[in-house]
């Protein structure tokens, strides 16, 4: 069963002479329960693909199918219950005036849950924060703790597909290890499918089963992680990227 199918996806910003094509004709599929990586340097369009899927980049053409649902301009509420996103910078992705409790409570409320209190408690336990963090504000949390809150928020509607936009690139390596372990545990416990964007090949190889290498808005190569580990990239750009990462 395919969880995500992206066909001939084009994403652009601006119009007329100022038009910038950020993604050009991207094709890939992600199976249910799989973890798929998008790798590339800054400006390669990897994050833009995530934003197009989540509906944050309004100008796109092509086909996006999520869990059998074909997506149009407007996303139905059922979409947000299936797909959630974790952002790159945990310092920017939490409202500075909202406590952890408010962030999670509002999310649960918007998705129509009734037992909000019990669920907030469970979400905090799920991401390994515990109750003493429930009423804290973002400025009272470290980067890793904030990213855990952001992950809890993404998990709140019980999604099937999680879009991860460089979830650890703003964190220290020791914290990165904790968050990556948490993501692995959550995927196993909740049967999640991941689509992860990263510039770090070793992180992608740790989290993902397959990956696509992007350059200048195009996918140049799709390969599995075993091939990556054996340095068997076919496209010259992927090889170059691999060389630089060793």
């Amino acid at each position: 069963m395919k969880m995500l199918e992206v066909k001939a996806l084009n994403v652009w910003f601006g119009a007329g002479r100022d038009r910038v094509d950020a993604v050009k004709g991207a094709n890939f599929t992600v199976e249910e329960g799989e973890s798929f990586g998008l790798v590339g340097e800054s400006g390669s369009g990897k994050s833009t693909i995530l934003r197009a899927i989540s509906g944050l980049a309004p100008q796109w053409s092509g086909g996006i199918n999520v869990n059998g649902m074909s997506l149009g301009r407007r996303r139905p509420n059922a979409f947000y219950k299936t797909v959630q996103m974790v952002f790159q910078d945990p310092y920017a992705s939490l409202h500075p005036r909202h406590s952890v409790d408010q962030v999670l409570g509002e999310t649960l409320y918007l998705h129509g849950f009734r037992d909000i209190d019990a669920r907030v408690v469970r979400l905090l336990d799920d991401v390994g924060l515990g109750q003493k963090f429930r009423f804290r504000y973002p400025h009272q949390l470290s980067g890793g703790q904030r990213q855990r809150v952001a992950i809890a928020r993404a998990l709140a509607p019980e999604p099937k597909l999680l879009l991860l936009d460089e979830p650890t690139s703003a964190l220290d390596v020791s914290v990165q290890a904790e968050v990556l372990n948490l993501l692995a545990d959550l995927r196993a416990d909740h049967g999640l499918t991941y689509l992860m964007v990263s510039h770090d090949l070793s992180v992608v190889s740790h989290v993902c089963d397959r990956l696509a290498v992007m350059k200048d808005g195009e996918i140049v190569e799709v390969m599995d992680v075993a091939a990556l580990r054996q340095m068997r990239a076919t496209h010259p750009y992927s090889q170059q990227l691999l060389q630089a990462s060793i």
Binding site: S174, A177, L180, N181, L201, S202, L228, R229, S245, I246
Partner: peptide
């Protein structure tokens, strides 16, 4: 040691990363 071990590595796959 903890910092070094907490890094994921391309050449040495691991199920779980070591936590410092």
């Amino acid at each position: 040691r903890g910092l070094l071990n907490s890094l994921p590595r391309l050449d040495a796959p691991r199920d779980r990363l070591e936590v410092l």
